[in-house]
Design a protein around this nucleic acid. Structure first.
Lengths: 374, 374
DNA sequence: CTGAAAGCGCTTACAG
DNA sequence: CTGAAAGCGCTTACAG
């Protein structure tokens, strides 16, 4: 009969009931050290009778391991982060780890507080999409405290951590190349291009070294711009700065305005590339206001970190980040490092998938030419 | 100068450096008991110099409080649960709590393991959407171990817990009433109606006591059927069992088949009510296959626990659960109980919102009549 | 207001 | 293979 008392039985009580020392009871219950089969049976019986439940706090205090991963995301409500968390959670469960999740709201101070809390809770490792560009002191502290960190989506330079990102440059390059091949020569790009770069777009376009390793530290939307530029240069098309729209803030309202301006300009683009889901939403609002059909009047290719399914449902080609895999890969890297601290740091690059409706290839779906804007 | 050593300083080292006892250092750092201003200053300086970071494991072990909430959801990737988690996370942060999140995949065994893990980690309380109908032993154990539980979305009967749910019956009743008022007399309903009821639909319809308090323990889709029934009875319409479709599984594929059958039956309904987002997806696939317009040929009202925005974007009226508020309310209830264990248990019922595009009212948007099915 | 001592529930050397 | 003792990093009575 399992005892359902209010306070949980301890190893000492189990030991007393089994007639052994607490060290021995600990060995069989904690599954370490040696113990004879007879003793094991007695202890387990006593534990079951008392409804013994191990206290992981005490174990963590003594072993220095809590079997807990701390995660910092921008906003758990965003489909991208939710999916990443799913991937993390699956791998963590298999490894017997718990996951503490915190939202940073992409806010520096909240991120710092979150990391602090997680370190105080003695997490074994941290998986973070950091909002910091220059001052990642809190992450340095974590590393210094021997708490391994895995970065994903965005990478802060100069930290000794593993990382997982999507190959933004190459997947954008090949997708834009397909648009060009389909007959588009004037392709607009709408991207946040917010943080992480001091340059204005013009000097970025003029000066960026496409072969530099620093590209990995650019924020995703800048990397996507890079892929856009590479595709144009490969095709011998000089990119028109008028077609490159920096929305600067992560807001569909701002994107809508920029898109309206882009679509009604003289010599308007025949196709649009949006660097993320919020930008896409802005474009859809703009085309709806202008009564333009998509696809048809305008071809749209959407790099989506939000809910790409809704775009695909509308016949729009979307580049879907493997968000679930990002999380799983991050957690795998972390668990690997927890198992063996001496591994060299790993920078894992995942390929995004191009997703289309009815399996129509990108270059088929895209059409050159569009009707006049009213 | 902050020391960045690999192992963290303890209260004992801070005390030594400050020239006080560890008890005193603990008092000022832990913000409890008395200490003179001079001592406080010395201790704080020493702590800063050593880069002291409190170990919450040790504190938790001794106080019995970890400042951690455990949450069990079906799937963090679902927009409904993600939003609930956002609400929980916000309230938890304000209260200085961390949140450990686990996915049950609506699987009994995984849910049991998750709760077990959370209890071993000594969470202060649990917020759970349980998949269990009859055997919530794991939740009983939690309550017995003085770990307060808050249930949401679905409620298991017979547990001494707080709970937060949406008022499924009344919001469905009034929405269906609006459909009836708009001229629909044959309204189809597509609902999972899976777990939690032994009855078949016919005997449920015949026997259910609408005024019974047990209604709160029905699963959401059964409650929504109840609202559907109430609206019909209030309007003096005898519900046609042919129009009530039990999909039984939570699958859009199954919903699509059922919807196809419903829409092509003799005397087909002029309007459809779908009890959740997966059912809605199935209906949209079916109407698309039949080349029916929505709204127009068919009026659709969707009770959505998934991403209602995409339905609204298509001009469909949706009933949106206040998922964010569900989470916040759940966390608030929990924190309240943690502060004062003797409160009576609370069953909080939130009203869902009816969301429409362009503020068109439900009864305007719904139109009677539909074209023939090919 | 401060300190010495005990203890939270475990695990870890170290003897036997 | 088992037990007595020490200790993880804190907090809590209890004296002073």
């Amino acid at each position: 009969m399992i005892q359902r008392s209010s306070k949980n039985a301890t190893i000492i009580e189990v030991a007393r009931r089994a007639g052994v020392s607490s060290a021995t009871a600990g060995r069989v219950l904690g599954d370490y050290g040696y113990s004879s089969p007879e003793v094991q049976e007695k202890v387990r019986a006593a534990a079951a009778a008392l409804g013994y439940r191990p206290n992981r706090l005490a174990k963590g205090l003594i072993t220095g391991k809590t079997q807990t991963i701390g995660v910092v995301v921008g906003d758990i409500e965003s489909p991208f982060y939710a999916s990443v968390l799913r991937g993390i959670g699956d791998v963590a469960r298999r490894g017997g780890f718990g996951v503490i999740v915190t939202n940073s709201d992409e806010n520096a101070e909240l991120e710092r507080e979150a990391v602090q809390l997680l370190l105080e809770k003695q997490v074994d490792g941290l998986i973070v999409s950091s909002t910091f560009a220059d001052q990642p002191d809190h992450l340095r502290e974590a590393v210094a405290a021997r708490c391994p960190v895995v970065q994903f989506d965005r990478i802060v330079a100069g930290l000794e951590t593993d990382s997982v990102v999507v190959d933004n440059v190459s997947v954008t390059r090949s997708s834009i190349a397909a648009m060009i091949e389909a007959g588009h020569s004037r392709i607009g790009i709408l991207a946040e291009l917010g943080p992480g770069q001091r340059d204005d777009v013009g000097s970025f376009v003029a000066n960026v070294d496409l072969s530099s390793a620093d590209v990995r530290y650019h924020h995703p939307s800048w990397q996507r711009l890079l892929g856009y530029l590479e595709a144009h240069r490969a095709a011998g098309i000089e990119p028109d700065l008028q077609l490159i729209r920096r929305v600067a803030v992560y807001s569909s309202e701002a994107a809508r305005k920029e898109a309206l301006d882009l679509l009604t300009m003289r010599n308007a683009p025949s196709a649009l590339f949006t660097a993320d889901g919020v930008m896409s939403t802005g474009v859809l609002e703009a085309t709806s206001a202008l009564k333009l059909a998509i696809p048809g009047d305008v071809s749209l290719l959407c790099f989506d970190d939000l809910d790409w399914m809704q775009f695909v449902a509308q016949g729009i080609t979307a580049i879907a980040q493997p968000a679930h895999l990002i999380g799983a890969a991050g957690a795998e890297l972390l668990l690997k490092r927890l198992a063996e601290a001496t591994l060299p740091f790993e920078h894992r690059v995942l390929a995004a998938r191009v997703v289309e409706r009815n399996s129509i290839a990108v270059h088929v779906q895209l059409q050159a030419g569009r009707s006049e804007v009213p």
